[in-house]
Nucleic acid binder design. Sequence first.
RNA 1: GGAGGGAUACCCAAGCGGUCAACGGGAUCAGACUGUAAAUCUGACGGCUCUGCCUUCGAAGGUUCGAAUCCUUCUCCCUCCA
Length: 429
Amino acid sequence: MEIFPMYQSALLQDLQARGLIAQITDAAALDELLSRESVTLYCGFDPTADSLHLGHLVPVLLLRRFQQAGHKPIALVGGATGMIGDPSFKATERKLNTPDVIAGWVGKIRGQVEPFLAFDGDNAAIMANNYDWFGSMNCLEFMRDIGKHFSVNAMIKKESVQQRLQREDQGISYTEFSYSLLQGYDFAELNRRHGCTLQIGGSDQWGNIVAGTDLTRRLNQKHVFGLTLPLVTKADGTKFGKTESGAIWLDAKKTSPYAFYQFWLNTADADVYKFLRYFTFLSVAELDAIEAADKASGQKPEAQRILAEQATELVHGRAALEAAQRISHSLFSGNLETLTESDFEQLAQDGVPGVALEKTTAGLIDVLVAAGLAKSKSEARGFLQSGSVAVNGQKVDALDHQIADAERRFGRFTLLRRGKKNYAMVRWP
RNA sequence: GGAGGGAUACCCAAGCGGUCAACGGGAUCAGACUGUAAAUCUGACGGCUCUGCCUUCGAAGGUUCGAAUCCUUCUCCCUCCA
């Protein structure tokens, strides 16, 4: 255990023990405030895609943690800021999306955040959209009322934009450079409207958050706070939240609950106890007990299973978790021979990637490519030659293998496996 | 404005007229081992109608029986001098 300041607030104590605190603007004063009263806090999510991904989950869960501790969360979706693009620590200028695309994304992201928060009771959560105050603001107003409070001298010193200023081949547009003024003003506006006194965000947001605390002090003469979360890192140095097939999304249509469950199940031992602290609501005491039990057992650790269950249920719900477990069981420890027709239907429905073919005759190589298990026929041949392909659980290595009628379960389904963990279900006409 | 250096597959990086689809390393994928781990070892790693063929070495032309390798022009990066 590292040495850390003793907070009086139970919430900060818990966050500290979970490793969820990177920086706080005025830790002592915030600690005092949080232990004294219910605080209104916010976190912003910009619509940069049609779904949030795992990187957004930590702050979303943090809003929930605050709410469970009796504080009032505001989830802000950046209908306005999303139209500008945050340059913080981004190597290149962003491509602007059209307003109607962004508006569509705002709706989706709103829908994804809402289930994590409670909208009743004294500390009911609030959904906000900064387009509400920026949409009608005119340019002169912005320049005079907001811009006047920002020093360009200070802004260009920020680490978050340094690489964009120093690199000759990558500039930064005036648009993106202005981003932190918008986010700064959000804080002031939420402070005025809802008495919001704390902003949370990833550690890359520190510069923008401080812009907000400064601006709120100047505009509203209010002392407000910022708290950042550490960047989620992996022990092996690779980027968290990505797999070979791309980002892990919270949207079940983009990343199935099964894939989501599998992602967590495959967490490295070196990371799993940290991730349990980040991504579950199990108490630190419970987590310590799990870790101790795993170390003592000398067997396969339980931590990955617990993490996968907790995280999947949290994001996709109980039913989706059970479906993911059902598939995982059939594919990895069950006997494929015993699957019934309705089990196959269920697998397809529950999220095993699949492809529907139109012809009934097909060489295995073509089917592997069609099912997305191989990028090209050459690759498919390579997989066959290395003995990594199985049809309905039976290893096949013949390059000219044709899918036979006997390999179509119930005349309709063929389950392909490439490597140990990549499955695809082929549906025949 | 002047003088040099460079641009090679996902990344780094050899090659400098034929034996080059292009050394080597990393990443990735797969096999063995295992816990659907890690580490380690082994293999694959442009495409295809695959003992061969096609398309690739910043772009476009040219020389040559033959070019990633030579020539010309262009584009972009780096260093030094004004």
